[in-house]
Amino acid sequence: MTEQTQQDPRDKHKSDEFPAHGDIGQPGLNRETTPDPDHGESSYRGSGKLEGNKALITGGDSGIGRAVAIAYAREGADVAIVHLPEEQEDAEATLKYVQEAGQRGHAYATDLRETNAAEGVIGNALKDLGGIDILVLNAAYQKAREGIDQISIDEVKKVFDTNLVAHIAVAREAVPHLKAGSSIITTTSVQAENPAPPLLDYAMTKSAQKAFTEALALELGPKGIRVNAVAPGPIWTPLIPATGFPEDKVQEFGTDTPLQRAGQPAELAGAYVYLASEDASYTSGAILPVTGGKPF
């Protein structure tokens, strides 16, 4: 009789109780997030699935982006990340894990909303990495809204410029340099299908990212480039206490899922590895939900 090795998913990370958490402000930083998110620093074990690949990850300094960077490096890929200048401390920590895995790591302090920012980032990645095989469009911004009658149009533009326009700009610059076998992965959200009123504009962009993924997969498939997305549910990252939710909302974060807890960034890494790897060679135009059981 074999020994049981699978863990009850309800209990994993269950000890990570979230205290009443005041708004830590944008952008959220890892050192201001309690408890520390698990990015797979001590748990992720690679098996060479991405050996020889070169990956560019936007929003790679913390949260989901850091977990993906760690996993990709431990799977054998060189990694470049994009982050805001204010996130330098977190970006340096991510690079440390990439380099400790024996891979090349580069970081670009860039606000992707700025004119020509995407062109500069892609140019730097091509120079530093020698090419791009995997493009992860992960950078995002969200802020809790009090109601449609009070929403700031400038804030809406910031959400759309970060979550949509920047994605299109980076993809536009990258695609001419992607070879057959390359992969683009977008981070959408369960909010794309189950929008919450306080995240009205964020949810709109996540729904649009789903359409972006599906349309781009149709366009680029004949060129041998796969395009997919991961749709996270409630994942504990610095973005959450930086969103401006009420303190009790943060305390209860993720308890409304069937698994009755929030997920950790490390629990998403495998989805991004799969979609970038040869295991997913016939997977394109797919949205892979990692939601703790919330329907998508």
Rank of each mutant, 00 (worst) to 15 (best):
Q4W: 04
T5F: 14
Q7T: 13
D16R: 14
D23Q: 07
I24W: 06
T33R: 03
D38G: 01
H39G: 03
S42E: 15
R45A: 14
S47R: 12
S47M: 06
G48K: 01
E51S: 15
K54Y: 04
L56F: 04
G59Y: 03
G60D: 10
G60T: 08
G63T: 07
R66W: 08
I70Y: 01
A73P: 04
R74V: 00
E75H: 08
A77P: 01
A77T: 01
V79K: 11
V79H: 06
H83W: 08
E87Q: 14
A93C: 05
A93S: 14
V98T: 09
Q99T: 14
G102P: 05
H106K: 09
Y108S: 10
D111K: 09
D111L: 09
R113A: 03
N116P: 00
L126K: 01
G130A: 10
G131W: 09
D133Y: 06
V136S: 10
A139Y: 05
Y141L: 11
A144H: 13
A144Y: 13
E146L: 11
D149Y: 03
D149T: 12
S152V: 08
I153F: 12
D154I: 02
K157T: 11
F160G: 03
I168G: 05
I168R: 13
A174E: 01
A174R: 01
V175P: 09
P176M: 03
L178W: 09
G181T: 03
G181Q: 06
G181E: 04
G181S: 02
S183D: 07
S183Y: 03
I185F: 05
T186A: 15
V190D: 10
P195C: 04
A196G: 12
P197A: 10
P197K: 12
P197G: 06
L199Q: 10
L199V: 05
M204D: 05
M204Y: 09
K206F: 00
K206W: 00
S207W: 07
Q209V: 12
K210T: 07
A215T: 14
L216S: 10
A217N: 06
K223C: 05
K223S: 15
G224W: 08
R226C: 07
V227G: 04
A229M: 10
V230M: 07
V230L: 07
V230E: 03
G233M: 11
W236L: 06
W236Y: 06
T243V: 02
G244K: 01
F245M: 15
E252Y: 01
F253V: 05
G254S: 01
P258W: 07
A262V: 00
G263L: 11
E267I: 04
E267W: 05
L275D: 06
A276Q: 03
E278M: 09
D279N: 02
A286S: 14
L288M: 13
G293V: 12
